[in-house]
């Protein structure tokens, strides 16, 4: 019998104020049935100072609750001071998730994980990085089930798939949140804080399409891979990533936990998850090898 599927709560990708973030992690520590929590600012270095003083106590609290804690590294670096912060993080005693190749330079020879902002598309690249110390990977969100299966077959490597939350699609040095408010990145006044799930971007036909989160562009649709749970297991995926949103993440992680424990079937859980999100549709097209925005019925045949 294989091990039960584990759950990782991904980093909070949005700019939540420190109080909200602290409350969030308290509740996660006490109530969310997740195995691992990734903390830290991975999208915009301007946001990082706000929560930094709270980070050690949050980590301690999560660890006391029995969670494995990983600190995520910044995903796009352009400035010298960002490099300094990255080096400091990689020199710390924390387990680090690398989200940029710069982090790989510092993490060589120590155990670390590979985040979805690194371009790992195939087994040759994954084996190379494993041989330098990587132990786990959450690959780019656009990978299909076949690609995921190939990566999952790499020995001594744990694979984790983005299974809930908006898909991170792109990074830029330009801040589109600021631009939508006729500001620039330097004069942003942290306007991204107004949209704790991202700023909705519609087509000119008023069809919801994308969500802007500072320098990051995300999908409007939320990933929901619950219906694909059995297929994921079959392909060797025993860890799923849930990306935090303002929806009740305890309820979300509980649904995934119940499916993993066999307490509820994946299709009814998937329907309940879709209901839980409410304000946006769900999608799993990337996993099924088609456009990411598509929602495809599970092809798993028991």
């Amino acid at each position: 019998m294989q091990n039960k599927t584990k759950l990782t709560l991904g980093p909070v990708l949005f700019h939540w104020n420190p109080d909200r973030l602290a409350d969030f992690y308290r509740r996660i520590a006490d109530e969310a049935p997740v195995d691992t929590v990734i903390v830290g600012e991975v999208v915009c270095s301007k946001r990082a100072p706000f929560f930094l003083p709270h980070l050690p106590s949050v980590i301690e609290r999560l660890e006391s609750a029995g969670k494995e804690v990983i600190v995520g590294s910044l995903s796009l670096l352009t400035q010298g001071r960002e490099t300094g912060a990255l080096k400091e993080l990689c020199d710390s005693h924390y387990l680090v998730e690398a989200n940029d190749v710069a982090a790989l330079l510092y993490l060589e020879g120590r155990a670390h994980t590979l985040g979805p902002f690194l371009n790992v598309y195939n087994e040759d690249t994954l084996v190379y990085l494993r041989n330098r110390g990587a132990v786990r990977i959450c690959p780019p969100v656009e990978l299909s089930a076949n690609a995921v299966e190939t990566l999952a077959a790499v020995p001594e490597m744990e694979i984790e798939v983005h299974a809930f939350g908006r898909f991170p699609l792109a990074l830029s040095s330009r801040c589109y949140h600021a631009r939508a408010h006729f500001r620039t990145k330097d004069s942003c006044q942290f306007v991204c804080e107004q949209d704790p799930d991202g700023l909705p971007i519609m087509t000119m036909d008023n069809q919801p399409f994308l969500a802007v989160n500072g320098v990051q562009t995300m999908s409007h649709a939320f990933a929901n891979l619950l219906a694909d749970f059995d297929d994921l297991r079959l392909r060797g995926v025993n860890r799923l990533r849930l990306s935090p949103h303002t929806v009740d993440m305890v309820a979300v992680s509980t649904l995934f936990r119940q499916v993993a424990d066999g307490d509820i079937d994946s299709l009814s859980a998937s329907a309940r998850l879709t209901e839980q999100v409410g304000f946006a549709p769900v999608a799993n097209g990337f996993y099924h090898g088609v456009e990411g925005a598509a929602s495809i019925a599970s092809n798993f045949v028991p």
Binding site: P140, E142, L169, A170
Partner: peptide, 21 residues
């Protein structure tokens, strides 16, 4: 490209075809 090159899945989100792959 206005996004960081090689780190953009916008095209594949809409079409299933991406620059990287």
């Amino acid at each position: 490209c206005v996004m960081a090159e090689g780190r953009c899945s916008l095209s594949s989100y809409a079409t299933g075809k991406s620059p990287n792959v």
